[in-house]
Design a protein around this nucleic acid. Structure first.
Lengths: 210, 210
DNA sequence: TGTGACACGTGATCC
DNA sequence: TGGATCACGTGTCAC
């Protein structure tokens, strides 16, 4: 029986007065106050008293209104509402939040997947948040080179999208006898980030080195 | 005053009995039931009556418990809890759902972003759901070519990731005098999808065509 | 008929 | 000391 933390037991003798107020207000509400004070009048003569409002009656009303407003707003942003009840609304909101979080994780893992299959192990920070285009950082170009093995590197280039720029980068790579093993490019709002997994060889079988 | 739809005014004469039950239960609760039935005994002699429970007392308790459980679970899945209150919990949940939905939309637009800046207008279906790696469809390779203008195309290739394969594709493009204007590649769980924006020219200034 | 969901006003508690 | 929040038991409505 963990409930019922009532029964403060130790207050002054004023409890009966409060109880009487409570009973009176309940009777007033039950009677409605229209015209049938006949039965109530004989029980409690203060039937025409000005309602004996509790201290926090309207505050509690406001609080309930805010809570219900939030329940309504929550019901507005959750697409799959199974039942029009508070409990179902909360349960659906919980399920929707979990589904959205899984979706975000999946999309981020798809975006963050890199050619070297071990990009994070190289110490490069995961860039889930810094990718937001609302960051007011203006890059003209940013290059990062991370050695992987003997001749392998991860090349990370951040730039502003421009037609023909990608070809120039490939040209430059070819000039250094670089072979592109794999490549990821993410473009968003005029920016682009490319992750090359490259291998530097003394010679090249590809016609690019011609 | 839109509230207070009470005062049904029209019930039978059994209202006093219900009110008495209510008052009695309130008094019993107020006393706590430990040992000080002295004052209550003189007010209502039915202090040892079996509580005169309302019809739906425990049902209401169960309902409240479920609601609070859901509030707790909701508070568990929302990361940014500003205040430990029901209202703030709901408000934070609403904000979190909105943030997650915006994040999902942004990530999906990043994934669906294509070099031609108008990939969707070419009739290619938006692939937010079919990208899920849990789809048990095994591709050996899939190529799609969508004409954009006079000499421009969108080339869409779906393959299984393999080292050196990307170089072979670039070789093939070079053999057709194709210039890569821009490129998006998304890799996930061993699969890769590349979106080329290419231009076919009779000659090429890039060294690839050598 | 009765069962569940709600709104209501209250007392208690925390700051 | 008030203001805010909460749990409580009730009456009422709908199915």
């Amino acid at each position: 029986m963990p409930r019922r933390p009532r029964a403060s037991r130790g207050g002054s003798g004023g409890e009966e007065v409060k109880m009487e107020d409570f009973v009176e207000s309940m009777l007033n509400l039950g009677g409605g106050g229209e015209g049938e004070e006949s039965e109530e009048g004989e029980q409690l003569p203060a039937a025409d008293a000005p309602q004996y409002k509790s201290k926090n009656l309207d505050a509690e009303r406001r609080r309930r209104g805010r809570l219900n407003d939030n329940i309504l707003k929550l019901r507005a942003v959750v697409p799959n509402i199974t039942k029009m009840s508070k409990e179902s609304t909360l349960a659906d909101a919980i399920g929707h939040i979990k589904k959205l979080q899984n979706q975000v994780l999946e999309l981020q893992s798809q975006l963050a997947d890199s050619p070297g299959e071990a990009w994070e192990k190289q110490g490069s920070a995961s860039c889930s948040e810094s990718f937001a285009p609302t960051d007011n950082i203006h890059y003209q170009g940013q290059v990062e080179l991370i050695p992987l093995g003997s001749c392998k590197y991860n090349l990370k280039i951040f730039w502003t999208k421009r037609a023909g720029l990608f070809t120039k980068v490939l040209e430059a790579l070819c000039n250094y006898n670089v072979q592109v093993l794999s490549l990821n490019t993410i473009t968003y709002y005029g920016y682009a980030e490319s992750f090359f997994c490259i291998e530097v060889t003394g010679f090249s079988m590809s016609p690019f080195a011609g």
